[in-house]
C-alpha cells in the first residue's frame, strides 16, 4: 500500500490523461457510425458490405492497429493521434451495427405515419427515426465507452501515457498494488462514463422509462381483408 500513498499524484495524473484519451474516440465514433449505420440499414447491397467491413475491423488486435497506423497514415509513431484514430476505428466498428439495428427497430407504421403527416425524409430521420432508435444506440454506446476505456491501456506499448503505464511498470518492478490501482482506476473511469451515458439517456430519451417493454417490437403483419 505504500506505493499508492507515495504515488497518488502519478495515479491522478494518469487517470486524467486516460479520461482525456478515452472521450474523443467515443464521440467521434458515434458521429461517424450514424451515417454508416444508416447505409447498412437502408440498402441491402451496402448492408453486407458495411457490416462485414465493421466486423473485420474489430478483429484487428489493438496492439497491431496501434503499431500499423503510423506508417500507413504517415504520422509519428509516438503520436497520440495514432491511438485516437485506432480507438475511433474500433468505436465505429462496434457502433455501426447498433445504429443499423436501432434504425431497424423503429416500427414501420410510425415511419409511414411520419411520411403521411408530411415529414421530409431528412427531417423524418432526425426527428422520428433517430430518437426512436435511441435506446438501442444508447446500449451500443455504453459498450463502446467501456471497451474504449479498457483499450486505451494498450496504448502504453506505443508510448502513449495512460493508466496502462501502471500495468507495464508494475509488472517490471513486481509491484502488485501498482497494477491493481491501475485496474481499479480504469474500471472506475469506465463506470463513471457508463453512468453519465445512462443519465444522458434519461434526459434525452425520457419516454424509454415508461415503455421499456413495448420496445420489443411485435412484427406487424399486414391485415388480410377477410
Amino acid at each position: 500500500m505504500n506505493w499508492l500513498w507515495n504515488n497518488l499524484d502519478l495515479v491522478l495524473e494518469l487517470s486524467v490523461e486516460h479520461l482525456r484519451l478515452s472521450l474523443p474516440p467515443i464521440i467521434l465514433g458515434f458521429i461517424v457510425s450514424v451515417p454508416l449505420g444508416w447505409l447498412a440499414y437502408r440498402y441491402k447491397l451496402t448492408r453486407g458490405l458495411v457490416l462485414t467491413l465493421a466486423g473485420l475491423l474489430y478483429t484487428i488486435p489493438s496492439l497491431a492497429l496501434f503499431v500499423l497506423l503510423p506508417p500507413l497514415l504517415g504520422i509519428s509513431f509516438l503520436s497520440e493521434l495514432n491511438v485516437l484514430i485506432a480507438l475511433t476505428i474500433y468505436a465505429v466498428a462496434l457502433m455501426t451495427r447498433s445504429v443499423a439495428d436501432g434504425l431497424a427497430s423503429v416500427d414501420p407504421i410510425v415511419r409511414e405515419s411520419a411520411t403521411a403527416v408530411g415529414y421530409s425524409p431528412w427531417r423524418r430521420f432526425f426527428s422520428v427515426e433517430l430518437p426512436l432508435a435511441g435506446p438501442v444506440l444508447l446500449a451500443g454506446l455504453r459498450v463502446v465507452a467501456v471497451s474504449t476505456v479498457s483499450l486505451v491501456t494498450v496504448g502504453v506499448f506505443v508510448g502513449v501515457r495512460s493508466l496502462g503505464f501502471l500495468f507495464t511498470n508494475g509488472l517490471q518492478r513486481g509491484i502488485i498494488v501498482e497494477i491493481v490501482t491501475g485496474i481499479v482506476m480504469t474500471v472506475v473511469i469506465a463506470l463513471i462514463l457508463d453512468g453519465l451515458l445512462v443519465l444522458l439517456g434519461r434526459l434525452v430519451l425520457p419516454w424509454t422509462r415508461l415503455d421499456a417493454r413495448a420496445r420489443r417490437r411485435i412484427p406487424v403483419t399486414t391485415a388480410v381483408p377477410a
Binding site: 479498457s150 493508466l163 509488472l171 497494477i179
Partner: peptide
C-alpha cells in the same frame, strides 16, 4: 458481465502473471 467487460485485459494479465 458489464463489470468484467470494463476490466482491462492488459492489467488483469500483468497482475495474474505476477501473482
Amino acid at each position: 458481465s458489464g463489470a468484467a467487460r470494463a476490466l482491462p485485459s492488459l492489467g488483469l494479465l500483468t497482475v495474474m502473471a505476477l501473482l
